[in-house]
Simulated scan of single mutants.
Amino acid sequence: MIAVIMAGGKGTRFWPRSTVAKPKQFLTLASEEATMLQQTYARFRSCLPEDNVYVAVSENYLPIVKEQLPELGENRIIVEPEQRDTAPCIALTASFFMKLERDEVLVTAPSDQYIPDTEDLMEALREAEKAARQDGVVVTLGIVPTRAETGYGYIEAKETVDSVLRIKEVKAFIEKPTKEKAEKLIEMPNMYWNSGIFIWKPSTIARYMLEFQPQMWSIFEQEGEEFRQSYARLQKLSIDYALVEKLKRLYTIPIEFIWDDVGTWTSLERIFSTDGDGNLRIGNIYPFATRNTIIYSEQQQVVVIGIEDLIIVSTEEGLLICRKSDEQNVKHAIAALTADQEGRQA
Results as ranks from 00 to 15, higher is better:
residue 206 A to C: 06
residue 229 Q to I: 10
residue 226 E to L: 14
residue 222 Q to F: 02
residue 214 P to L: 10
residue 248 K to V: 12
residue 241 Y to N: 14
residue 238 S to T: 12
residue 251 Y to P: 03
residue 229 Q to F: 02
residue 242 A to P: 12
residue 212 F to H: 14
residue 216 M to Q: 08
residue 220 F to M: 04
residue 224 G to N: 09
residue 208 Y to K: 08
residue 247 L to M: 13
residue 210 L to R: 14
residue 216 M to T: 07
residue 226 E to S: 14
residue 239 I to D: 09
residue 223 E to D: 14
residue 209 M to G: 10
residue 218 S to L: 08
residue 235 Q to H: 08
residue 220 F to C: 08
residue 219 I to M: 08
residue 225 E to M: 11
residue 213 Q to Y: 11
residue 206 A to F: 07
residue 248 K to S: 15
residue 247 L to V: 02
residue 230 S to I: 03
residue 249 R to T: 05
residue 219 I to K: 01
residue 245 E to T: 09
residue 233 R to S: 15
residue 250 L to V: 00
residue 207 R to D: 05
residue 222 Q to E: 15
residue 222 Q to K: 15
residue 211 E to V: 10
residue 217 W to R: 09
residue 218 S to H: 06
residue 239 I to P: 00
residue 230 S to L: 08
residue 237 L to S: 13
residue 218 S to V: 01
residue 212 F to E: 15
residue 224 G to R: 02
residue 233 R to E: 12
residue 217 W to V: 05
residue 207 R to P: 00
residue 222 Q to G: 05
residue 214 P to C: 00
residue 232 A to Q: 13
residue 244 V to P: 01
residue 203 S to C: 09
residue 230 S to K: 13
residue 243 L to N: 04
residue 251 Y to V: 01
residue 241 Y to F: 12
residue 246 K to D: 10
residue 242 A to F: 06
residue 249 R to I: 01
residue 248 K to M: 06
residue 207 R to G: 00
residue 208 Y to I: 02
residue 218 S to E: 11
residue 219 I to D: 05
residue 208 Y to G: 08
residue 224 G to Q: 04
residue 205 I to A: 13
residue 206 A to N: 07
residue 252 T to K: 00
residue 240 D to I: 11
residue 245 E to W: 02
residue 227 F to K: 11
residue 229 Q to H: 12
residue 204 T to F: 04
residue 207 R to S: 02
residue 207 R to I: 00
residue 246 K to A: 09
residue 246 K to T: 03
residue 251 Y to S: 01
residue 224 G to P: 06
residue 212 F to C: 09
residue 221 E to R: 14
residue 213 Q to P: 10
residue 222 Q to P: 03
residue 243 L to H: 02
residue 230 S to C: 04
residue 245 E to G: 08
residue 237 L to D: 06
residue 215 Q to M: 14
residue 205 I to E: 06
residue 235 Q to G: 00
residue 247 L to A: 07
residue 238 S to E: 09
residue 215 Q to D: 15
residue 212 F to G: 12
residue 242 A to R: 08
residue 249 R to Q: 10
residue 208 Y to S: 01
residue 233 R to V: 01
residue 207 R to T: 03
residue 247 L to G: 09
residue 233 R to I: 00
residue 231 Y to T: 12
residue 241 Y to S: 11
residue 208 Y to V: 04
residue 221 E to W: 02
residue 230 S to V: 04
residue 243 L to C: 08
residue 249 R to G: 00
residue 226 E to V: 15
residue 211 E to C: 09
residue 252 T to N: 01
residue 207 R to Q: 14
residue 222 Q to V: 04
residue 223 E to C: 11
residue 250 L to G: 03
residue 221 E to F: 06
residue 216 M to C: 03
residue 250 L to E: 01
residue 247 L to Q: 03
residue 212 F to M: 02
residue 242 A to I: 08
residue 217 W to M: 08
residue 238 S to G: 15
residue 210 L to M: 12
residue 210 L to K: 15
residue 228 R to P: 02
residue 227 F to Y: 15
residue 252 T to R: 00
residue 234 L to M: 13
residue 208 Y to T: 01
residue 218 S to M: 02
residue 219 I to V: 07
residue 245 E to S: 14
residue 233 R to Y: 09
residue 240 D to V: 05
residue 244 V to A: 10
residue 238 S to N: 11
residue 215 Q to P: 10
residue 205 I to K: 04
residue 231 Y to L: 04
residue 216 M to H: 11
residue 221 E to T: 13
residue 244 V to S: 05
residue 219 I to W: 03
residue 218 S to Q: 03
residue 217 W to A: 10
residue 247 L to W: 03
